[in-house]
Write a protein that binds this DNA or RNA. Structure first.
Lengths: 229, 229
DNA sequence: AACCCATGTTACAGCTTTGTGACAGGCAAA
DNA sequence: TTTGCCTGTCACAAAGCTGTAACATGGGTT
């Protein structure tokens, strides 16, 4: 759990220092940015395992920055914890909407922050990187973002790809629509559960073109399951 | 998502009532305890799907109780949401450390509580390692929501599945129709007791296709029992 | 045997869940 | 800007499930 790379984007030096001290003691690796530009530079240099993002930043607001990160295919996988002042608490929904995975209210204790970070990292962990997944002749190569059957590659949209990847890395397991929303769309996306059905349909259509549509199964009253059976 | 069983452990009657009302309307099933002893009794009777636990309790503190639940092999899988007063906010870290999955600060709105509960329930699911039940060659895998005999999957409807799961996790025990309604249909369902008979029949039919119909036995005047004998 | 009552069975209308096609808006590439 | 892909939602269709009533069966009693 430790040794993880964390990026803090915060303009108040005092807070940066406090966090730096606390996280250092907890065994984390911290890089600091005081504004959006600096942050993007560091992001480009090396993707952190988690981002601590201040709500209010000079120039671009934290929420806007979060939205930008979550829009990008590469940086979207990095979990974000928003740092908000108590008076901004009511806006927290906006933060969650923008893609934040959690938020911490200032003033916060170092212990709380560390606990939150660990919790979020734990949740994010299961996403495997750069692996190869296979099931019934269907091959997913995470590194190249490609899925193929017998050498022929499938034409999947981004969401279908993520959905399939999630299914393939958790084969045999039933997921409710809500769980799929959490896992594939991200926590706190304000999307109708039925939207999942539609994407399941789209995914099945593509798989069907290669005779593999039965891989995605409906479990009535429970959700969906990916299985080679 | 509804029909879930929730246990609230809270000494203030006013809060219990408010929560009871809110959760009832959201389709949850609520049981109430006002102290630790009562809570443990209800826990022993039937494990809930989620626990709402007040921080301050007469006798044993909520945090201590949470720790106890999380220590027990049986009850550790149940997610806990702590209810804390604003003044106790600083201690929330302790709650998370004790094993709480989330916390809600009093005063809270019913909507927020319901949202939190749903979020935690969704999240909690994946944690529960695939529970496997077995009896006389009949295998039930909770993670994949699948029941099979000799590798062949049975085609069960949602209610049949839940009924069978309940039976298998309490083999040898006789349940009255009323108890089955409580456990499988939920405490506030308005369903005729004879409906149970019909579902027992349906379940038996499916089991019968695989030569296992004798597993569900009638105990005249008492109810039904699942037994490998 | 006649009867009572608990349980087994069947049929079905209504309801819930899921599948599907269409569509408007958003975003990015050209 | 235009074009083309992707997305999220709806509305409607299709499936599948559910609860009940009504009738059948069968064991146990008197």
């Amino acid at each position: 759990m430790s040794g993880k790379n964390i990026l803090i984007i915060e303009d108040e030096a005092a807070i940066r220092e406090m966090v730096s001290f606390a996280l250092g003691k907890a065994g984390f690796n911290l890089r600091e940015a005081s504004d959006a530009a600096e942050a993007e530079e560091l992001m480009a240099e090396q993707l952190p395992d988690l981002i601590l993002l201040d709500w209010m930043l000079p120039g671009m607001s934290g929420i806007e920055l979060a939205r930008r990160f979550k829009r990008d295919e590469y940086s979207r996988q990095v979990p974000i914890i928003m740092l908000t002042a108590r008076s901004e608490e009511d806006d927290r929904v906006g933060g969650l909407e923008a893609g934040a995975d959690d938020y911490v209210t200032k003033p916060f204790s170092p212990r709380e922050l560390v606990a939150r970070i660990k919790a979020v990292l734990r949740r994010a962990q299961p996403e495997g990187e750069g692996e190869m997944l296979e099931a019934d002749g269907l091959v997913l190569d995470a590194a190249s973002h490609r899925v193929s059957v017998e050498g022929k590659s499938l034409d999947l949209g981004p969401t279908e790809y993520r959905l399939l990847k999630h299914f393939m890395s958790h084969a045999e397991r039933v997921f409710s629509r809500g769980q799929l929303l959490d896992a594939v769309w991200g926590r706190n996306s304000f999307v109708e559960e039925r939207t999942v059905d539609v994407h399941i349909l789209r995914l099945r259509k593509v798989l069907g073109l290669h005779g593999r549509d039965r891989l995605v199964q409906t479990v009535r009253g429970a959700g969906y399951r990916f299985s080679a059976q």
